[in-house]
Design a protein around this nucleic acid. Structure first.
Lengths: 228, 228
DNA sequence: AATATGAATTATGAATGCATTTTCATCAGC
DNA sequence: GCTGATGAAAATGCATTCATAATTCATATT
């Protein structure tokens, strides 16, 4: 009874609202749509060449993700990032990241550790050349790989949702040389923990790593805060 | 400059899609819409007497919350609760609840502790009379009060979202006398931690409490699992 | 009888249109 | 000059309509 087609591999095109959600989310996360600005439906409709119906569905989703705030009859704004937001979000991310470290050490394969090792070396090279953007890029890939190793989609989804909210700040946060060196050192420890599969310590290091990152982002926000 | 009206309290009627979201969420969480069943748009439209546009917006939101699953061109289903789901969700809830305990002990006021003490006594009475539904009700209020004491809306939102997903199971989970006694004892400890503001221990107890709850729910799921 | 095929039915995806609310420019009154 | 009123313009909320994909059911074929 086994044929070449015995394994079902359904392929379905994403619906428009889903694609819009992803596209607009990217626009927000990479700062293309700046925090605080209004987002009239009409503008996005003409930009994407779609009607209001699927667009509005996307806006509702992004609002529940915390990237937009909607006011009835008044439309959508890109959520602002206040210092209070950071103080709220980072502890939660810390708890989730700690859990991800713990679980990752339980489930991670040798191949995955190897892959992260490769990413780690790439990141170090970007650090030496002071290529901030590329550093961030690889950095994010490492954290993503750890998250995947935790084998918990619920955890990953929740974490990514929060990360998206603060990543907008992280992108522009210019680290001091000192902080950058420290972060790199912390990543060295993270690598160690993974290779020895020391979940408890990884949990601790990741949380610390994030707390230090909070300081960086908070600093940036103080320097660049826009008047309400 | 502080007047009676210094705190802005904008007064806006919720929009229809928001009310629908809440209403349908309740239907799902309290089991009125059972896990696994199809949810045709038309049925909900006639039930609520609304058109498809706001309804569909609500469905998108509930899908991002994990209560529904949507398949393009095929419609919506109430998410099933599998043992794998529980194994994913509970650890994440555990991490969040641990954090909430830690934060609550930092911020909770004497009045709030007093209020929780009142709820605690109520719960004990329901336990003695073996009133399961009322016990659950007050139980939930206690956890909600702790969550509020943590003073972190982000945390609260994330936690509630996960709690909603498993509450459907919790409602029907019939506890053994043994487990019930144990849970009550754990709540005694929770109360102690709050009154001594021992965040570290509360964190630990809440996590343990949740792990035990997982066992109960998992047991129920084994007994009542419906065939896919 | 069992399976496969294709038309009819039904459901969802997306665009359009109308009603209501906000916004904003203009102007009257103090 | 500032406050508040008025009406036009614009934006949002929701219903309806059209398009397209999925499902169902009758029919044909083996």
């Amino acid at each position: 009874m086994t044929t070449a087609l015995s394994t079902p591999t359904p392929f379905r095109r994403k619906s428009l609202h889903a694609e819009l959600t992803d596209a607009i989310r990217n626009q927000i996360v990479n700062g293309d749509l700046a925090p605080g600005i209004r987002v009239p439906e009409k503008d996005l409709c003409t930009f994407y060449g779609v009607s209001r119906t699927p667009l509005r569905e996307a806006l509702k989703v992004l609002a529940t993700e915390g990237l937009l705030s909607l006011e009835p009859n008044r439309g959508a704004w890109v959520s602002r990032i206040t210092p209070e937001d950071l103080d709220e979000v980072f502890p939660v991310m810390g708890a989730l990241e700690a859990l991800s470290g713990e679980l990752a050490c339980k489930h991670i394969s040798d191949a995955e550790i190897g892959h992260i090792r490769v990413l780690h070396r790439q990141m170090l090279k970007h650090y030496e050349k002071r290529e901030l953007a590329k550093y961030f890029e690889v950095n994010q890939q490492i954290h993503e790989a750890i998250l995947n190793a935790a084998r918990n989609e619920t955890l990953a989804t929740q974490y990514r949702s929060l990360a998206a909210r603060v990543r907008r700040a992280r992108y522009v946060a210019n680290m001091t040389q000192e902080r950058w060196a420290q972060a790199t050192d912390e990543h060295e420890q993270i690598m160690d923990c993974l290779e020895t599969r020391d979940g408890e310590r990884l949990s601790y290091v990741l949380k610390l790593h994030l707390e230090n990152k909070l300081e960086t982002v908070r600093q940036w926000l103080q320097d660049n805060h826009d008047p309400a």
